[in-house]
């Protein structure tokens, strides 16, 4: 059979997976929203959470879309579309495809025409990421049980523990921003962008706390993020 990585069959598979993801997300969204109302949370606040989360998501989602574009050059559109709509991320899918292609002695410089190579890549992408999905139902209750017992012994330490974990994640990513500074001024661009974003956030904080611009609180993060991305567009050509 002739193989086309953009065939209607593959689009059909993609549509099925995307529909599954949408239904699952809607199920949890509606359930949590109802629960919020049930325990007396302000419906207005719940709706604001939806709006602010949606707006925050736009920029990162477009960057994920760029990942689909990158992979589509050799895998066609449907498979990258599936992979990046589910647990996959470009940082994983690209090495997975490269690793499989090199194991099969195939180059990824052009569109794949062999269905066997294509299916091998699809298998590696799937199996490589599956553990993080299936570990959740296996481990979640145990992890929560552990946290509950820590909290019941010492609630302040329980809270500190979660904050410390989050700070650990932030510090790893903020540290990564410094990885190119030995390359001279262009290596400093990400740091300037990060600092600009931080300063924007501090300014937003002033507006929220001192000038009482309450609506800004819900949109501060996406505003700072997009502001800093625009800043990157302005300073990069000036520096390079």
């Amino acid at each position: 059979m002739n193989f086309n990585p953009n065939s209607s069959f593959l689009y059909l598979v993609a549509a099925f997976v995307i529909l599954f993801i949408l239904v699952q997300s809607l199920f949890f969204l509606i359930r949590a929203y109802r629960r919020g109302k049930e325990i007396g949370m302000d419906a207005k606040k719940l709706r604001k959470t939806i709006t602010s989360s949606a707006i925050f998501t736009i920029a990162p989602a477009i960057s994920i879309l760029l990942g689909v574009l990158t992979l589509s050059k050799f895998l066609g559109l449907p498979l990258p579309w599936i992979r990046l709509s589910v647990i996959g991320a470009i940082t994983y899918e690209l090495p997975a495809a490269t690793s499989t292609a090199s194991a099969l002695g195939v180059s990824l410089s052009e569109t794949i025409t062999s269905p066997t190579v294509y299916s091998a890549i699809a298998w590696v992408m799937t199996l490589g990421i599956l553990p993080s999905t299936i570990l959740v139902p296996i481990l979640l209750k145990r992890i929560q049980g552990g946290l509950v017992s820590i909290k019941s012994k010492d609630s302040k330490w329980g809270e500190l523990l979660i904050t410390a974990m989050f700070l650990g994640m932030i510090s790893a990513f903020m540290g990564m921003v410094f990885s190119n500074i030995r390359k001279g001024l262009p290596g400093w661009i990400p740091i300037f962008v990060m600092l600009f974003s931080a300063v924007l956030m501090a300014v937003c904080g002033l507006f929220i706390r001192v000038l009482k611009v309450k609506w800004l609180q819900d949109y501060a993060l996406p505003i700072c993020m997009i502001g800093a991305m625009v800043f990157a567009i302005i300073i990069t050509p000036a520096i390079l």
């Binding site: 477009i62 932030i170 600009f196 931080a198 501060a220 993020m225 997009i226 567009i233």
Partner: peptide
């Protein structure tokens, strides 16, 4: 440059 710097833009503010 905007998409190259999406992580610094996110983690700076956060």
């Amino acid at each position: 440059p905007a998409f190259d710097n999406i992580l610094p833009a996110l983690f700076g503010a956060l």
